[in-house]
């Protein structure tokens, strides 16, 4: 029932969830920090490489599609609403209350940049969702907020059952003569109301039973231990190190104002003396990890050592 995550035998799937979180969020954070359009395509390629080498292409496809749609949307909307920029490409009509709809080169390029940014972020989230099991993510949550993570675990466990129950309620009420699929919006809505009552009431009854079962197993006693299965391994350090370096390097350089870039009022030249540094850093980080994952899969010696 968990549609996005599947157990696989790759290095990424064997990582500690914290490392995997670092690995997948680094590209997303970089995409947010770096304002220079030059670096994004590289990030994008690196991420796609990561997805490919981790064997999650199929699972990620829906994320990539969504990212692409969002990117297209931004690419289309940005030039229309954005009236800054000096190089006007198309003179649009004049709208009341709004002004002239002019498409500028700067806005167009910014749209491209922002679209790519969205794509990278969504793809990174897809990578995270498909390589870290939700269960491990919950364990991470449990480290700092135990109660909410327990409630969340309970919700995750109950959800599939409730979806099935909702389907069953629909079937049964259809058979009883409730016309759920006919009529206007309003009629359909009214026909659905009793179903909602049914689902709500049985969920509350269930909550009461679960609370009893939890008490029967000693919940609420006070000091509680959290039983962790996964521990850090050398492979975590090997993956985390390059990611930390890339992240730290980029943050340090950007804080010093080295990577800044401005689209408006007029495009600046993306290439400057710091570009090789950023490009090199990103390429190095990505390549290291991709190579590592690739050889882990093929090289038994490496697998057994880390």
């Amino acid at each position: 029932m968990l549609p996005v995550y599947r157990e696989k035998n790759t290095l990424v799937h064997r990582l500690h969830p914290l490392t995997a979180l670092l690995l997948s969020l680094t590209p997303a954070i970089l995409a947010l920090i770096l304002e220079n359009p030059l670096y994004l395509p590289l990030l994008c390629i690196g991420l796609l490489g990561l997805i490919g080498v981790s064997e999650v292409w199929d699972e990620c496809r829906s994320f990539l599609r969504l990212g692409l749609i969002m990117a297209m949307f931004i690419l289309l909307i940005n030039p229309l609403v954005n009236r800054q920029g000096e190089h006007i490409l198309v003179y649009g009509p004049h709208l009341p209350f709004w002004g002239n709809i002019n498409v500028t080169l700067e806005a167009l390029l910014y749209g491209l940049f922002a679209g790519l940014r969205v794509f990278v972020i969504v793809a990174a989230c897809g990578f995270l969702s498909t390589t870290v099991s939700p269960d491990d993510l919950l364990d991470l949550l449990a480290r700092f907020s135990l109660r909410s993570s327990l409630a969340m675990a309970l919700a995750v466990r109950l959800y599939p059952g409730m979806v099935v129950e909702a389907e069953r309620i629909k079937e049964v009420q259809l058979a009883r003569g409730e016309r759920l699929n006919e009529g206007k919006y309003w009629q359909r809505f009214k026909a659905h109301l009793p179903l909602w009552y049914s689902l709500f009431q049985s969920s509350l009854d269930r909550a009461a039973n679960i609370a009893e079962a939890m008490s029967a197993r000693g919940f609420g006693r006070g000091k509680r231990n959290v039983y962790k299965k996964k521990s850090f391994q050398p492979r975590d350090a090997i993956v985390a190190l390059p990611m930390t370096i890339v992240l730290a390097g980029t943050i340090a350089a950007s804080t010093a104002g080295l990577g800044s870039y401005s689209f408006f009022p007029s495009l600046a030249l993306p290439w400057n003396m710091w570009s090789p540094f950023f490009l090199g850093l990103i390429a190095w980080g990505n390549l290291t990890v991709i190579l590592l994952i690739w050889s882990w899969k093929r090289w038994h010696w490496l697998r057994s050592k880390i």
Binding site: P134, D135, L138, L150, A153, L154, V156, R157, G161, R206, N209, I210, A213, M214, A216, R217, G218, F219, G220, R221, G222, K223, R224, N225, V226, Y227, K229
Partner: peptide, 22 residues
């Protein structure tokens, strides 16, 4: 359906033991 509270079999068995802080 009304008494299991976590997501996996292992965790479920551990749940009560965790509550007692073992």
């Amino acid at each position: 359906e009304d008494q299991l509270v976590t997501t996996t079999v292992e965790k479920e068995i551990a749940f009560g033991l965790e509550n007692f802080g073992l």
